[in-house]
Design a protein around this nucleic acid. Structure first.
Lengths: 147, 147
DNA sequence: GGCGCAGTGGGGAATTGTGGGGATTTTTAG
DNA sequence: CTAAAAATCCCCACAATTCCCCACTGCGCC
C-alpha cells in the first residue's frame, strides 16, 4: 500500500512531528515502529519505513565501490541517514541538521506528503516555490507516463 | 461494469455525500467498500474504486524514483489522493481541500457523474461553465475522438 | 396499503494531534 | 573524576476532529 495524501502538522518545541495516522497505517506492520530519516534530494526530509529503506540499501550494495561517483553517492545518502523509532504517539523527532537543511522551524506547521515509498516533510513555503520552478514537467509526464 | 449516469445528491454539513446506489453497485465487489478521492484534471473531484486506483499505482511503481521528474510527478499525483471507506450508508466525506478545489460547498447539491472507470463530483455551476468553455460541441468531439 | 431501499441528518464514542512533565542518559565544565 | 547542565526518552493528559452507528423520511415496487 503506497503512501499518499498530505497533512499539515506542527513541529513542536522539541522538534517532534506526528506522522499522520493514515500514513502510519500504510506502513508495513513489520516496520511500523521504525523509520529512517535522511536528506531528501530536494530541500526536504525523506522518511522511509525500515523495510523500504532496506531496499535502498540493497541497491547501494550493488554499486561498484571502485567508482568515484558511486562512493560519493552512497556517502552522501548514508551520511545524513538516521534511524528512529516512533514514540507512543506516532511521532518522530527531527534533528537540528535536518531541520536546517529543509528550512523547517520548531513551533511551526510543516507539510507532510506521501510519495509512494516514502514520506516527505517540507517547509510549506519552500515546497510551493520548488513546485513552481518545476511547473512544466507535470503535464508532459502525465501524458507520457499514464497516456 | 462501467460507471454511467448522473445524480444530484447533497453534501451535508459534515462534507459527506452519498454515492448513488447504481454506481455503488457497479463497483467491483472486492473494492466495494473503498475508494480513492483526488483532484480531477478539471475542477472536479475524481473518485476511483480501489481496484482501478491500484492500476494507477502500478504504473507509478514502475517509475525510477531517483529521477527528478518522476518524483515530481508522483508527488503531485499522490499529494491530493485520499483513501476512504464508504460508511454504512454508502457515503464518502470530502476534505476541505478537495471541496475548495472543485468549488463544492457543504449543505448544497453536487453533481455526480459516472465516467467509465471513475466518478466525478462537480459543483453544478462549475460543470456547466466548464462544458460551455470547451470549444468542441458534443458532436464534433465524437468525431475527433471516436472517428 | 405495506414493505424495502435510498438518501439525509444527527449524536456518541474512539482516535488523532498536541503539549507538557519527569526520569534517565549524555555532555560539558570544574 | 565529579557534579552540574543539557539533551533525550518515555509516559500521561487534554481537546478537537473523525469515525461509526442509529433513526427518520420519501419514493417506488410489489
Amino acid at each position: 500500500m503506497a503512501f499518499k495524501g498530505q497533512a499539515e502538522n506542527t513541529v513542536d518545541s522539541k522538534g517532534r512531528i506526528a506522522i499522520p495516522a493514515k500514513m502510519r497505517n500504510a506502513m508495513n506492520p513489520e516496520a511500523k515502529q521504525t523509520v529512517v530519516l535522511t536528506r531528501g534530494f530536494e530541500k526536504t526530509v525523506f522518511v522511509y519505513p525500515l523495510d523500504e529503506w532496506e531496499e535502498i540499501e540493497a541497491q547501494i550494495a550493488q554499486l561498484n565501490r571502485f567508482q568515484r561517483d558511486a562512493r560519493n553517492f552512497s556517502r552522501q545518502l548514508l551520511r545524513w541517514a538516521e534511524e528512529q523509532t516512533l514514540d507512543s504517539q506516532g511521532r518522530v523527532s527531527l534533528t537540528k541538521e535536518l531541520m536546517a537543511f529543509a528550512g523547517i522551524n520548531t513551533s511551526e506547521k510543516a507539510l507532510i506528503i506521501g510519495n509512494f515509498d516514502h514520506l516527505e516533510i517540507w517547509n510549506k513555503d519552500v515546497f510551493e516555490q520548488a513546485m513552481n520552478e518545476e511547473s512544466g514537467s507535470y503535464e508532459s509526464l502525465a501524458e507520457s507516463v499514464m497516456g
